[in-house]
Structure formats: C-alpha cells, structure tokens
Design a protein around this nucleic acid. Structure first.
Length: 423
RNA sequence: GGAGACGUCGCAUAGUUCGGCUUAGUGCACCACCCUGCUAAGGUGGAGUGCCCUUCACAGGGCACCGUGGGUUCAAAUCCCACCGUCUCCGCCA
C-alpha cells in the first residue's frame, strides 16, 4: 500500500508514477476524495461516541429512580452512534479499496512504458557460438536422461516434468551452490511453507494482478505460493523489527507453483515455463534509506552466480508498466539462450520499498521512537530454469555438456555430462 | 475427526462468577530523576499500538484496541455466535 501521507501531501508524484506505469491517473484523485470523506466520517463518529461515553458514565452513577429515564434518552443516541460508526467503516473500506489499486510509486530513473521499454544496464560475456548445430535444452536433456516431459504430462498434465538422473542432480547442485553463496553473504536459510493463508497471499500483493496465476485450495482456504517471497514476507508480519545494526536477510528454499494461466501456447517446449519448479530466493528487510543500496547488492550476488556458471547475460532495468504493483524498481537478469537467439529471464530482483511492509504491518523504530514501515527486497539466486541456459551454453557437438568449474564440487567433481544410452 | 482447557499492556499474571466503581490492577524487565560514601537495596515519576482533530512547531484533546470478526445492551475484557491459534487426551495416518 502506498503511504497515505504521501498521497495527501504529494499526489503529483503518485500521478507521475501512475502515468509511467500506464495505470489510472484518476485513481489518485478518487483516493484523495475518499480520504477526505473517510476522515470526515471518522471525525463525526468519534464526536458522537465521545458524548455517548460521557452519557454512559452518568447512567452508571445515577440513582435507580432516574436510571430508567436516562436509559430511554440514551437509546436514541446509541442509534446515532451506530449509524455514524457504520458510515465511518464504509468510508474507510471505500478508501482502502481505492488506495490499494494504486501501485508503488516508481523510483526516479525507471524507464516509463511497457515490457519492451526496458533499459539495458550492462551485458556480460560473449554470446556462445558453435561450429555445429546446437541442440535445444530439451533435446540435450533427453539425450542426457535428465528431463522427461512425456511422463510429466502423463502423471500431472502439460507443463509438468520429471527431472531424473543428472537432471535431478543438476538442480540440487544449483540450489546448493546458490545456498552456499547466500550463506557466505550472511543470509539465514529458511525452508518455507508453500501453502499460505489468504491474508499472507493478499498482503504480499499476489492476489491483485497475479490472481489468475495462483493455485487455490478451496477446501482448506489456502494458496500455493509461486515463490517463497510470499512466506518470507509473511514471516515478520505484524512485527516491529530491530534493523539498527544490520538488515535481516533470508534465503528461502522452496518449490514454486504457478498456473501460467495467461501463457497458453507460449514456451510450451521443455522446462522454460512450468507449473512447478524449485527456487532459492533472497529476501531482505532493510531501513528505507538503505533499500537502493541493498537492491544493488542483490543484483551483484545474482551476477556472481551467473558469472561463476559461465553464462552470458544482460541486466535490465524493467520498465514501469512491467513492474508489478509492489515493486518500485525491478532488475531482471536475462541469460542468452543459444537456440532461441534471445535473452531469457533467469533472475528478477525487486525493491518493494515500504509498499509490501505497509500492507503486512512490518515496522521498525525510528530514532525518535516512532514506528515506520521497513523496506523489503527480494531476488532470485537459482531456479530450475537455469538448467536451460546451462545445458545450451556449455553443450558440445556430441551432445555432452561441460560442467562449469564452480558447479563441479556440487556434482562430486563431475566435469562432463554425457549422453546416456537408455533414456 | 472427537472431547476438553486456554488465549489480557515486552514477559508473568489479576480481573470474566454477578456487564457500569477498569482512563485494565500487580510483579519483573525498561527509561528518567531522587536517596545512600560506592555497589546492592529503597523512593518518585514515566512508559503500548493505530487513527482523528487543533498546531508552523512544541504540545494538547479525542476515538479505538484485552486472539480475530460479528451480535446483544444505554453500557462488553466480562454475556452470545463464528473463526483462528496453543495445549491435553482419544481416534486416524502414505
């Protein structure tokens, strides 16, 4: 949720952000009007309530023979209070409904516009070239006995798969490498719940524009999370954190579930876009003033990983219209996928500033002793999808795949993935 | 799944029987000051969260909050209902 004080004091800033995102600018004026109505309703309710409280004291201390008359008098006042209370509640709800449609104001420098309006911050590594016709990740995965899409579909439907043999080991290796990297950067590992309550899902902002993407279990009123960010953000819900010494940093390890509802026909081959995958996610709770520096730090950690794996990539500053409501800025790292001749997203890191924390009521104490919402940030450190870039980038003419040096310790020293005879 | 107990201001608790004397008492911890040659002990005072109003500000006033949400009532921590959570016992269990 945006800061209501900012809304009141600097609506123009929010309007500019809405404009850059391609979201409703009028929503800002509606929210201002709803805020004024809400405050007026609260004020009149509280005045009535105060007089009712006073009256209650008179009734309590009145002699029995006067009580009856006083009670009769109080009844009409009670009705007024009730009506005013209901009006205040309604006005509050209307304000909340409108204000929650307004996305986090983007940070200066974020490019305006939609998906294609990103700006490239930097690229790293030569895009790989081959003196043979490169195989795509699924063909390689099948040769290596690593990926089994057909049986995944048999058991669970399209966009499901089995990782087997070296494929399964590869994923575990990647996750462990990422975990070690996170540990050395001071992150606390957390294996998170993947089923969460509605208020947690809602608090993290995933029931808004991502609603169609989320698996829901009506029998239990629980949601399957599409990223451990949800549980990691919910972890400190309703708490006042001490961030004075240093930020709280967590590395969440979880399976992620996504319906991929709007992506029919897109990326149907292989494990690029699937309903279930594993991810190691970084999450940081920091003081608002430190958020941008932390954001840079998260990207740097991601780049370390991609560089260690010998992948060619670019870092992009995602355009305002492609941000998602909670993020004030988002950096994606996209790795080169040779057979697609394109960069594909491997990581994403968002600075949600105080937007997510305000909804989840996660605060810290300022120097004056007041409470204020913290800033939250999140970012990918490894996912199943990385296998795609890894296999394609390091493949050789015979279908074997070289293992990057940094990954070898996680595969028992294995240097080469070789085709198996019996897939 | 069944039966029962419980959920109060950071922690521990009182208050719930019989609704108003609760602006929720007490102890510990915390902060400030006082006192004592130092320390310990003691004394006095302060202190929660959110929102609204007045104010340049300092500050002041008000409303709400006793797990959450409803209800009854002139009035709810207290009565009623639902839900959530914790614990105990029983049942079930890949």
């Amino acid at each position: 949720m945006i800061d209501p004080v900012l809304l009141r004091e600097n609506p123009e800033l929010i309007k500019r952000s809405q404009e850059a995102r391609g979201d409703s600018v009028e929503a800002v004026d509606s929210a201002l009007a709803a805020d004024a109505a809400r405050r007026a309703a609260i004020t009149s309710f509280e005045a009535l309530r105060a007089s009712q409280n006073q009256f209650g004291k008179r009734v309590a201390s009145a002699p029995p023979e006067e009580k009856k008359a006083l009670v009769a008098e109080a009844q009409s006042l009670a009705a007024e209070v009730k009506a005013a209370g209901a009006a205040a509640t309604d006005a509050e709800a209307r304000f909340t409904t409108i204000v929650r449609t307004i996305a986090n104001p983007v940070i200066d420098g974020v490019p305006a516009g939609g998906e294609e309006n990103f700006s490239t911050l930097r690229t790293h590594g030569q895009t790989p070239t081959f003196d043979f016709e490169p195989r795509d990740h699924l063909e390689l995965g099948e040769l290596l006995g690593a990926i089994d899409m057909a049986r995944g579909a048999k058991v669970s439907g399209s966009r499901f798969y089995f990782l087997r043999g070296i494929g399964a080991r590869l994923e575990i290796a990647l996750m462990n490498m990422a975990l070690d990297h996170a540990l050395s950067a001071g992150f606390v590992p957390l294996i998170t719940p993947t089923l969460v309550r509605p208020e947690i899902m809602d608090g993290t902002g995933f029931l808004g524009e991502h609603n169609d993407e989320v698996y829901y279990l009506p029998g239990d009123d629980l949601y399957l999370t599409g990223t451990s960010e949800v549980a990691l953000a919910g972890y400190h819900k309703d708490e006042i954190l001490d961030l004075s010494a240093e930020p709280l940093r967590y590395a969440g390890w979880s399976t992620c579930y996504r319906r991929e509802a709007g992506s029919g026909g897109k990326d149907t081959r292989g494990i690029i876009r699937v309903h279930q995958f594993n991810k190691l996610e970084m999450f940081a709770y920091v003081l608002p003033d430190d958020a941008e520096a932390e954001h840079d730090r998260l990207v740097a950690l991601q780049e370390d990983m991609l560089q260690a794996l010998g992948l060619s990539y670019r870092v992009i500053d995602v355009a305002a219209g492609d941000l998602g409501s909670s993020a004030a800025r988002k950096f994606d790292i996209e790795a080169w996928v040779p057979t697609q001749g394109a960069y594909r997203e491997l990581t994403s890191t968002s600075n949600c500033t105080t937007y997510q924390a305000r909804r989840l009521d996660i605060r810290y104490r300022t120097e004056s002793g007041k409470t204020a919402p913290v800033a939250t940030l999140n970012g990918t450190l490894a996912t199943t999808r990385w296998i795609v870039a890894l296999l394609e980038t390091h493949q050789q003419a015979d279908g074997s795949v070289r293992v990057p040096v940094a990954l070898r310790p996680y595969l028992g020293g294995l240097e080469l993935l070789e085709p198996v005879s019996r897939p």
